[in-house]
C-alpha cells in the first residue's frame, strides 16, 4: 500500500489535497513503505475525515437505512439458500451470487459508516456481537413469512421467488429515493449508485426466473404497477407513472406511433420514500 501514490492520485482530481490534509502535509509527503501497514487505515480515516468532512447526519442516517435494508436482504437469502430442496437446482448459483452481493453490501456499509464516524446500525435482536465485525447472520430479527402472509415461503419456490423479486425491486426503489440525500458527499453518492444498479441486476434476473417459470407477463423490467402477489402491491404502486420531468412519455414518438404506455412505464423505474419503504419492510421485521 503506497499512501503517497494514493494521495497523488487524489491530487490529480483535487490539486489542493495536500493543503486540505495539512498540517500533516510534510508527514504525508515523507510517508513511504516504512509506515506500519496496520496503522494506515486508521490514519487515513481520520485524515480524510478532516479533509473531506462532509459526512453529515443525513448521509449517515441514509447509509444506516441502506444497511438496514441490506441486512434484510442478506438474511433472507442466507436463510433460504440453506433450505434443502427449496431453490431449483439451476438457480442455486444465482441465489448464492445474490446472497454474496448482499453480504458484501452489509460489510461495505458497516465499514463506510464506521469510517465516517457514525454509529453503525444493528438489527433488533441482533446477537452477532460487534456492529462492524460481528456476524451479520441474525435469524431472530426477521420473519420472512411476514406474519403468515407468505406462510409457505420455506416450501413453495414460487412464494420465495415472489418475495425475492419484491425485495429486489423494492431495494432499487429505496436507493433511488435516497440519492438526493447523499449529494453532500459525492463519493458516498457514487457508492450508493453502484449498489443501486446491482440490485436492479438482481431484480431483472429474479423476474426472468419467474417469467420463464410461467409468469410470462413478468419481464425483467417492471410493466405498469404489476406486483407478483397482492400483498406486495405497495412495492409497485407508482411504477405506472408515465410523466417524467413534465414530459408525458406516451406523447413522444416511438418506432411506429407514439411510445406505448407499457414501454413508458418500463423505461423509467420509480423511487419510494423512506417512509414508504419502512411500511413495506416492517412486516418482515420482528418487533
Amino acid at each position: 500500500m503506497d499512501l503517497k501514490f494514493i494521495i497523488d492520485e487524489i491530487q490529480k482530481a483535487d490539486p489542493e489535497v495536500y493543503e486540505k490534509l495539512s498540517p500533516r502535509r510534510e508527514i504525508l509527503k515523507s510517508f513511504g513503505a516504512k509506515v506500519a501497514v496496520a496503522a494506515l487505515p486508521l490514519a487515513l480515516g481520520s485524515m480524510f475525515k478532516k479533509a473531506y468532512g462532509k459526512v453529515t447526519d443525513v448521509v449517515l442516517d441514509t447509509l444506516n437505512f441502506a444497511l438496514e435494508l441490506e441486512y434484510i436482504e442478506f438474511n433472507f437469502y442466507h436463510q433460504y439458500n440453506l433450505v434443502s430442496g427449496l431453490i431449483a437446482g439451476g438457480d442455486a448459483a444465482a441465489f448464492a451470487t445474490i446472497e454474496a452481493h448482499e453480504l458484501a453490501h452489509v460489510n461495505f456499509l458497516r465499514k463506510a459508516i464506521q469510517a465516517s464516524g457514525g454509529t453503525v446500525y444493528t438489527p433488533t435482536h441482533y446477537s452477532g456481537g460487534d456492529p462492524v465485525t460481528g456476524s451479520p447472520i441474525s435469524p431472530a430479527s426477521y420473519d420472512f413469512t411476514a406474519g403468515g402472509t407468505f406462510a409457505d415461503i420455506a416450501s413453495n419456490y414460487a412464494t420465495f421467488l415472489a418475495v425475492s423479486q419484491t425485495f429486489e425491486d423494492t431495494g432499487v426503489r429505496a436507493y433511488k429515493g435516497q440519492a438526493a440525500n447523499l449529494q453532500s458527499n459525492l463519493d458516498v453518492l457514487t457508492d450508493a449508485l453502484q449498489i443501486h444498479s446491482v440490485e436492479a441486476r438482481h431484480a431483472a434476473h429474479v423476474r426472468n426466473i419467474r417469467r420463464l417459470a410461467g409468469a410470462t407477463a413478468n419481464k425483467p423490467w417492471i410493466t405498469g404497477n404489476t406486483a407478483p402477489a397482492a400483498p406486495a402491491q405497495g412495492s409497485y404502486n407508482g411504477e405506472d407513472n408515465t410523466t417524467q420531468g413534465g414530459v408525458v412519455i406516451t406523447t413522444l414518438s416511438g418506432v411506429s406511433g407514439n411510445v406505448s404506455t407499457n414501454a413508458a412505464t418500463e423505461a423509467f423505474d420509480e423511487p419510494l420514500t423512506k417512509d414508504q419503504i419502512v411500511t413495506i419492510v416492517t412486516p418482515f421485521i420482528r418487533p
Partner: peptide, 8 residues
C-alpha cells in the same frame, strides 16, 4: 437514477 436501473 430512474433510467440507470432500467439499463441495469
Amino acid at each position: 437514477g430512474k433510467i440507470v436501473s432500467v439499463e441495469a
